[in-house]
């Protein structure tokens, strides 16, 4: 019998929150480090972050046994629970991010804009780091689940978040700019490609190190965990997380010509996102596939996400569509993203 309590929706939650915090960190770095080449993407990235933050919390909300009691976290918070800090940091991040987007959209001509926006972005970035690390901490602090219990989990989640944030911005940059018939700058694509390449190397390095350490320590539950990753989850672990979502984009990004191609970067961003989703899925679900009898014997169970009903693939697709809708809504409500970075009106092709 499978005992997967955190199923499909929690499987996609860290993926969505990772993309949200990652795109926010990217926007903050663009402004704070004055990456002029990418300034066109600041508000665009902030809007993506804003939309995906809502989508991420929607997945959590739907997953609750009794969603209407979610507000109890505000009226009966237990401060020893990491989940409380996660919810509070999300709320603070959401409020500050909305304020930042409003300032970027309507108040760029005010004398206080530059100072205010920089401070806001700095605070936003710190909160985004805390929020994305929190997901890792939530899993990493649980005793007895081999795949989760590691001090490296929060760092690994943070790196993966930055990677998926850069990838989703790249993907949507190509798609949205094409849809709006605006010329895509190869310089921007190349810079994004270099950022993805560096973070991808760091992310893969941390993931591999984490697994090697676990294999070397080889606790009693490691053989069962290894079996889960290489049998039940073999396709998503070896195929999607490491090969398709890791090695393939890594090799492709080393080629300069690919980094300057619209379609090339679109495919690479998509592959990186698939890899990030597979990583989160394998961690969340894989950890729960190892069952322990109290006599000290471990067994590997299987999990097939239900197609319909609660915590199903249909709900997960619904949440992803909700995220896309919110991005579109954000781009319509905050139209200034089209004229940022001195490209007033966009260079029409």
């Amino acid at each position: 019998m499978s005992d997967v309590v955190w199923g499909t929706l929690i499987g996609i939650y860290p993926f969505l929150s990772g993309m949200a915090t990652g795109s926010l960190i990217l926007a903050a770095l663009i402004e704070l480090l004055e990456w002029r080449k990418l300034r066109e993407l600041t508000l665009f990235s902030l809007i993506i972050s804003w939309a995906l933050l809502i989508a991420a919390v929607t997945a959590l909300f739907i997953h609750l046994g009794i969603p209407l009691r979610a507000f109890y976290i505000f009226i009966h918070p237990q401060l020893s629970s990491p989940m409380v800090y996660g919810v509070y940091s999300w709320l603070l991040l959401f409020i500050l991010l909305t304020a930042t987007i409003v300032i970027y959209n309507w108040y760029t001509d005010r004398p206080w804009f530059k100072t205010a926006s920089r401070y806001l972005l700095l605070i936003n970035m710190v909160l985004a780091i805390i929020f994305s690390s929190y997901s890792g901490f939530l899993f990493g602090s649980i005793k007895g689940v081999e795949l989760w219990s590691s001090p490296l989990t929060p760092i690994s989640f943070l790196t993966s978040a930055v990677l998926s944030g850069a990838a989703v911005v790249t993907l949507l940059y190509v798609v949205v700019w094409r849809l709006t018939k605006t010329s895509i700058k190869h310089e921007i694509l190349n810079t994004l490609g270099v950022i993805i390449l560096i973070v991808l190397i760091a992310s893969l390095f941390i993931q591999v190190i984490e697994l090697l350490v676990k294999a070397k320590i080889s606790t009693a539950s490691w053989p069962a965990t290894y079996t889960a990753l290489t049998s039940q989850l073999a396709v998503s672990f070896i195929g999607l997380q490491f090969l398709l979502g890791g090695v393939v984009p890594l090799v492709a990004l080393l080629l300069g010509s690919v980094r300057k191609s619209d379609i090339g970067m679109l495919v690479i961003a998509l592959l990186v996102l698939i890899g990030a989703l597979a990583y989160k899925w394998n961690t969340v679900i894989g950890g729960q596939l190892v069952e322990e009898a109290l006599s000290g014997v471990y067994a590997v169970t299987s999990y097939t996400p239900p197609l319909t009903g609660e915590d199903s693939i249909l709900w997960a697709i619904g949440v992803l569509i909700w995220g896309v809708f919110l991005i579109a809504l954000g781009l319509v409500v905050f139209p200034k993203w089209r004229v940022m970075g001195g490209t007033e009106g966009g260079a029409r092709s």
């Binding site: 005992d3 309590v5 955190w6 997953h63 609750l64 046994g65 009794i66 009691r69 979610a70 109890y72 976290i73 009966h76 629970s81 989940m83 939530l138 649980i142 005793k143 007895g144 689940v145 729960q288 069952e291 322990e292 109290l294």
Partner: peptide, 19 residues
């Protein structure tokens, strides 16, 4: 008061809880 988040179920090292 329980909201059904399942965190306690994951945290129990004795797997004594269920949803």
């Amino acid at each position: 008061r329980c909201i059904g988040c399942g965190y306690c179920i994951q945290a129990c090292p004795y797997d004594a809880r269920y949803f």
